[in-house]
């Protein structure tokens, strides 16, 4: 057995040279190509990623925009709704107030009308009562003598103020004496005498009859009208009944 050292040496040199050559011409270019391709792929991926990021950002923007729009619309709707509700509440309130007022008016009117009606009715009743009283008194009143009224007339005349009394039934302007029935001469004289006494001077009188007085006298002249008769009494009573407050 013989080992050829020369061959070992030569083969070692050969292999080292081959190592260098292959490293230079095969492995390094291959690695470079692969690395280049990887870099290109990475660049492409980065580009794609950037594009994707941009697209996603755009989508996010659009979504934010949409959200904003929705929010604005909702706010507007809200405001409109609130306003509408406010309006409606105001309208309802106004309507309520109107209704209340109208009802109050109506009630007042009703009350008023009722009051008026009642007053009317009362008045009618009073008038009816007065009429009835007048009819009732017609008979007995006619029988009452003049002398029943003269003192009262005299008292009424005495109650008059001085100036009025003096101006009443003067010769320049005679007073008018109404009686229920036509007076006889005797009665006329008694009335003239009683009135003249009450006035303090000679009375100038004209006589007339009016059955509406029922019974009694009415002396009218100048500014004064003196009623001493049942009709006037009835009227007073009726007026009192009509207006119980006053």
């Amino acid at each position: 057995m013989r080992i050829d050292w020369w061959t070992i040496g030569l083969q070692t040199i050969n292999l080292v040279v081959l190592l260098w050559l292959l490293g230079r011409f095969f492995f390094r270019p291959m690695a470079k190509v692969v690395a280049d391709r990887q870099a290109a792929a990475n660049a492409l991926l980065d580009d794609a990623k950037a594009a994707q990021d941009k697209a996603e950002a755009a989508i996010r923007d659009a979504e934010a925009e949409r959200d904003r729009t929705i929010a604005a619309r909702e706010a507007a709707l809200d405001a409109a709704r609130k306003e509408a509700e406010g309006q409606r509440a105001k309208l309802v309130e106004a309507a309520h107030a109107e209704v209340q007022r109208q009802r109050a008016d109506a009630e007042m009117a009703i009350t008023h009308a009722r009051g008026q009606a009642e007053a009317q009715m009362a008045r009618h009743a009073n008038e009816l009562a007065a009429d009835m009283a007048a009819r009732l008194l017609e008979g007995p009143g006619a029988k009452l003598p003049l002398s029943a009224f003269l003192p009262e007339l005299g008292q009424a005349l005495s109650a008059l103020p001085e100036t009025t009394r003096e101006a009443l039934a003067t010769s320049a302007e005679s007073a008018h004496l109404l009686s229920a029935r036509p007076l006889g001469d005797q009665d006329k004289a008694a009335a003239h005498e009683a009135i003249s006494r009450a006035l303090g001077h000679e009375a100038s009188l004209t006589f007339d009859a009016d059955p509406a007085l029922i019974a009694g006298l009415r002396l009218s002249g100048g500014m004064a009208v003196l009623d001493v008769n049942l009709r006037a009494d009835l009227d007073r009573v009726t007026a009192k009944l009509d207006n119980p407050d006053g």
Partner: peptide, 16 residues
């Protein structure tokens, strides 16, 4: 120079 060395050279030339 032996036969393996020559063959190696040929292979080297081929590979390079």
């Amino acid at each position: 120079v032996t036969q393996p060395v020559v063959a190696t050279w040929a292979i080297m030339a081929l590979m390079v």
